[in-house]
Measured scan of single mutants.
Amino acid sequence: MSRESDVEAQQSHGSSACSQPHGSVTQSQGSSSQSQGISSSSTSTMPNSSQSSHSSSGTLSSLETVSTQELYSIPEDQEPEDQEPEEPTPAPWARLWALQDGFANLECVNDNYWFGRDKSCEYCFDEPLLKRTDKYRTYSKKHFRIFREVGPKNSYIAYIEDHSGNGTFVNTELVGKGKRRPLNNNSEIALSLSRNKVFVFFDLTVDDQSVYPKALRDEYIMSKTLGSGACGEVKLAFERKTCKKVAIKIISKRKFAIGSAREADPALNVETEIEILKKLNHPCIIKIKNFFDAEDYYIVLELMEGGELFDKVVGNKRLKEATCKLYFYQMLLAVQYLHENGIIHRDLKPENVLLSSQEEDCLIKITDFGHSKILGETSLMRTLCGTPTYLAPEVLVSVGTAGYNRAVDCWSLGVILFICLSGYPPFSEHRTQVSLKDQITSGKYNFIPEVWAEVSEKALDLVKKLLVVDPKARFTTEEALRHPWLQDEDMKRKFQDLLSEENESTALPQVL
């Protein structure tokens, strides 16, 4: 008996699950189920560990084997000379395990699969056993689809999209007709009724959600790893209520002995410091949205989908001078704002400069500016000194954290500008005749005249004003913003236009 009217009423009120309206889709043409990776026989039982391990490696599972009696060998002398080797079968990115008779397991190899009674669906509900069930008529011709799209860092995100009359449910929550939600590992998919569980979705590319604290899981769906560094790992996640993407940084307390840091400095109150950081608001710094204190720290951040500045300059790639100017102007505005709010970044580098898009002209935002507030000064500097390429001379020669101030950030900005303009770092371990530390503390950077011949004198002058060993003589952010190279009204107008595109209400910060 159909429950279409009941569920449609529920759909009209929406769902609290991570779902959002989605535009129309072009329906895929039908194809045989076997060619799409559906096993030839149905099963109602969950797999054992041996079955799972075989399939996850990209080899055929026991459900897909063919009797050897149906095959015969071709003698080598009868092999056609022009026969080309077969292409290897792509490894599946996800697996659906059937929970009921009449449904088959599915190895997801393609990027898009339609499910329903219509014969054009890649996964067609046409098993005779299924057709005899009382629920068969409640399934729509095109009930739902599972697909994946390219996300940040060229990774993939799996989604389920509801197109049914009676509802598609993920972990008992209604997706909603015309809406989608991301699928995470071990999600249970039910059709027409929330208790009519048909599939379990296994994402073969992500970790299980159960490793994360419950308070975090209640608000966010964790997904793929976006990156990792000395101070922690960053994962893509989704807000459950809105389906908006965020980035979540995970900082290990054990790695940084944060408990010991608190004992050594009783004034170090991470929760208080995070609340201060959350109040920071500038178009060129990453917004801190939320914070969870569990076995590790979880910092929920605004997501930038254009990648890191590092990706644009790695491998001796240089940027156009006009692009360097647009990016560097924004970096200076961001660091100036942090300094005005009493925050020294201490870890400025291309990896911590994020881009809003893949376009050459785009907004940038500074991230990882609050680590000293979370990890403690000593722990952070011990970590950073392991990779000193961007560290100021006074940091390398000081004991502990004494003896330096916000000028350290201006040195790091000078190193970043040098790399963007030239395509190579000013200080490098590859210069074996002088140690990296000695290069930095003496201010002897690697200047290649033929490379810098293409760079304007004004740009080079600003680099020199920032890479000054004496912090008292080094340019401040205010002085850098007043430098002739940055007195470019076309560049500032472009920045204002980019801000307006992102948010019509965002105004250009005042600069002296």
Rank of each mutant, 00 (worst) to 15 (best):
E76S: 15
D82I: 12
L60E: 03
P213V: 13
A94C: 07
T242N: 01
S55T: 12
H22M: 12
H54M: 10
T168K: 01
Y123R: 15
A261V: 13
N171W: 03
K142Q: 10
K241C: 14
P21L: 09
Y123M: 15
S192V: 07
S228T: 02
V234Q: 00
L268T: 03
Q27S: 12
D134G: 07
Y123T: 08
S28P: 09
D126T: 11
H22I: 12
P85T: 09
Y136L: 06
V109S: 03
S53G: 07
E84F: 11
E84L: 07
P85D: 05
I189S: 08
S120V: 09
E188A: 15
E79W: 15
Y156Q: 01
D77C: 03
S210M: 04
E64C: 02
R180K: 15
D203W: 00
V211N: 15
L174M: 04
S223K: 13
S61K: 02
S49I: 11
A17G: 06
Y139F: 11
M222Q: 14
H163F: 06
S32V: 09
L60K: 04
Y123P: 09
Q29W: 09
T138E: 02
T43E: 07
F144S: 02
V175I: 10
K179V: 07
E173K: 10
L226M: 09
F144A: 04
K224Y: 08
S28M: 13
D208K: 00
S260C: 15
S62D: 15
I250V: 10
R180T: 03
L99F: 12
S42R: 14
G58A: 13
G229R: 01
Q100R: 14
T272W: 03
R262I: 08
S50N: 10
A17S: 05
T138A: 06
E76L: 13
K244L: 14
F115E: 01
Q36C: 12
A9D: 12
E233H: 15
V170W: 09
G23A: 06
G232L: 01
Q27E: 11
C121G: 08
K197W: 01
I146W: 01
G30Q: 10
G37V: 14
I258R: 06
A237K: 00
T242G: 15
K141N: 05
T168N: 04
G165D: 10
Y123K: 15
A98P: 14
F199P: 13
E233Y: 01
G23R: 04
F144R: 00
S19T: 11
Q11P: 07
N48W: 11
E84I: 07
Y123V: 15
K153F: 03
F202L: 07
L129P: 06
S252K: 10
L96D: 01
Q27G: 07
L71Q: 03
R240Y: 15
V25E: 10
D265L: 01
S164A: 05
